[in-house]
Design a protein around this nucleic acid. Structure first.
Length: 576
RNA sequence: CGGUUCGUAGCUCAGCUGGUAGAGCACGUGACUCUUAAUCAUGGGGUCGAGGGUUCGAUCCCCUCCGAGCCGACCA
């Protein structure tokens, strides 16, 4: 008896699994399978004259099959790519016993199965480099049918594009959409490129706490968790900034961390609750130096990835060749709105916001209003890389005051494609100023700003011992990857983007006897279950017996079951 | 959180004014020793996202819920 919950194809594959075992073939062998080549190597380097691949051994997943009488073709996909294989019955089975071809290869293997093959290379009449298989080994039987994607002349047929399937079952996405694997290889290359640069400068890669007693370093709603033995709340970090600066206090010249941060905010095309940021802090530097360094980081990443500094993003071509434009926030607002806000007080700024239709609330102070203005009217216009510099003091509580301009701080954000990619400061190292800024944040919080920062007294204590002048920078790895791989959604650069859980269907079913007891004829039990009445409880809930009789008769007719018809009265008796 | 579109076979999708669903691929069986979106013949496969309402009858109309996408709000 097959399992009711399995599809026909799944049942057939499980039967194949059993048959393999009966033939003495372990469908999930334990032993190492030694390969000596990847598919792409062969395709790139094979030469018929040199016969440079006399004996190959490779392993991969069967992606397509073209079965003929006594010889077949299939495609094998390994981590490098796909290669065609050719299996001929009399080569595979030189003796009398043709089981391995006739039964195992033709009948028991399926698309999705993983096998290893040994053989030699030849070129078909159609000119395709192909592995002529002398021997194959079953390495893993797949019992769930894989979506079949076909391709001709570069055009895909039946490609899996449903985002829900792609993100929930990323493993399937990675199997059937090779370009997806490529995006994640590039993501890794970007991180590698940055790490190489930092290490070559002698900066130290470190790890700092993810579970923090105070969620400092950024203004964002945190996730809260609980530590049982300490019996205290802990927060998942929203940033690692304050810990990295403690390490600069401790005497390291430069420290960096590729960090997962967590923010309990909304999700959209550029936001995921957990995301990756690279933060770096370097002693004796300022934000001007850091701008140049940031240019170098971005340029190198692009060169390492593409060999050039121009990248295509959507409809735009972005030029990542330094120097990038630098413009102060005030000038940016002037450039985009024609309004010069320099020297304006809170009331003046609020008037400007209202005039331009920028939403604002009474709890917003000067800095916040400027920020809103920039976010609503300017940010999206900076497609080419642009450093926006000199942010208002109020919204930059960890940043040093500007050396000459009053009311602003030495801070920059790098905008590319209208989105923030990086954020950096000349770090505030005056402990008394820092304490006052924290207290300002506390006052904002009391005024109703739920994004204001917490006060971290231990961080103040560290600054009191003295932190050298330092510049720090954080760069959003997800967004940088999006930009460099031309992906419009953050979900496309995260292997496992956050999703709501799938609802689990209950699989409880009533037994046959329970139906019989009610006087339901045996032949009607299956139709009842098929119509959704998998439990007696569900059946008892029905009120219109006429409809049920109608449904059952309809099912009988449709499926040509040949059961004699039911009257509504008979059905009514079951449910009395 | 609001607006909007969507959810049908393993996959990609049709489905008319409401009458219990079709195709291609995939799968089963048979044929075929260079195929490649293999081909030819033939067959099976569906609680039409879940629940409720209207109706003699709902994949279709109405309501609620679940999940997804897009747009907006929020997220400096």
């Amino acid at each position: 008896m097959g399992n009711m919950n399995l599809s026909e194809q799944e049942q057939i594959r499980r039967e194949s699994l059993d048959e393999l075992r009966k033939l003495g073939i372990n469908p999930y062998p334990a032993a190492e399978y030694k390969t000596n080549v990847f598919a792409q190597d062969i395709l790139d380097n094979y030469s018929a004259e040199k016969n440079n691949y006399p004996e190959v051994c490779l392993a991969g997943r069967i992606m397509s099959r073209r079965i003929m009488g006594n010889a077949s073709f299939a495609e094998l996909m390994d981590s490098s790519g796909r290669i065609q294989i050719y299996v001929r019955r009399d080569d595979l089975c030189p003796g009398e016993d043709k089981t391995m071809y006739n039964i195992v290869f033709k009948r028991l293997l399926d698309i999705g199965d993983i096998i290893g093959v040994k053989g030699h290379i030849f070129v078909t009449q159609m000119g395709e480099i192909t592995v002529h298989v002398d021997e194959f080994t079953v390495l893993c039987k797949s019992i769930r049918p894989l979506p079949v994607v076909k391709e001709k002349d570069g055009v895909l047929f039946d490609a899996v594009t449903d985002p829900e399937m792609r993100y929930r079952q990323r493993y399937v996405d990675l199997i059937v959409n090779p370009h997806v694997r490529d995006v994640f290889r590039k993501r890794s290359q970007i991180i590698q490129s940055m790490r190489e640069l930092f290490n070559s400068r002698g900066y130290l890669e470190v790890e700092t706490p993810i579970l923090q007693p105070i969620p400092g370093g950024a203004a964002a709603r945190p996730f809260i968790t609980h530590h049982n033995s300490l019996d205290m709340s802990l927060y998942l970090r929203v940033a690692n900034e304050l810990y990295l600066k403690r390490l600069i206090v401790g005497g390291f010249e430069g420290v960096y961390e590729f960090a997962k941060d967590f923010r309990n905010e909304g999700m959209d095309r550029t936001h995921n609750p957990e995301f990756t940021v690279m933060e770096i802090y370097i002693a004796y530097k300022d934000y001007n130096w850091m701008m140049t360094f940031t240019e170098e980081i971005v340029k190198k990443a692009s060169l390492d990835l593409h060999g050039k500094t121009e990248v295509i993003f959507g409809e735009n071509i972005i030029n990542l060749n330094p120097p990038f434009k630098r413009i102060s926030m005030t000038d940016a607002i002037k450039e985009n709105t024609g309004i010069d806000i320099s020297g304006m007080d809170e009331a003046g700024l609020r008037f400007v916001c209202d005039k331009l239709g920028v939403p604002n609330t009474p709890s917003m102070g000067k800095g916040k209003l400027i920020d809103e203005l920039f976010g609503a009217k300017c940010e999206h216009n900076y497609i080419q890389p642009t450093f926006i510099i000199d942010y208002p003091t109020e919204t930059s509580p960890l940043t040093k005051m500007h050396r000459s301009k009053p009311g602003v701080t030495e801070r920059f954000e790098l905008m590319i494609n209208g989105k923030e990619i990086a954020n950096a400061y000349s770090e505030l190292n005056d402990p008394i100023d820092q304490m006052e800024r924290f207290q300002d944040q506390l006052r904002l919080s009391e005024k109703g700003d739920d994004e204001a920062m917490f006060i971290d007294m231990d961080f103040i204590r560290a600054l009191e011992y003295g932190m050298p002048p330092t510049s720090g920078m954080g760069i959003g790895i997800d967004r940088l990857t999006m930009m460099l791989t031309n992906q419009p959604s953050i979900q496309d650069v995260l292997l496992f983007p956050q999703m709501k859980p799938e609802s689990q269907k209950s699989k409880v079913e009533s037994q046959k006897e329970e139906y019989l007891v009610l006087g339901i004829p045996e032949e009607w039990i299956d139709p009842l279950k098929k119509l959704g009445f998998t439990t007696i409880t569900k059946l008892k809930e029905i009120e219109k017996t006429g409809k049920l009789a109608n449904d059952l008769n309809g099912y009988n007719k449709k499926n040509k079951l040949g059961i004699s018809g039911l009257s509504p009265e008979a059905v009514e008796k079951w449910l009395k």
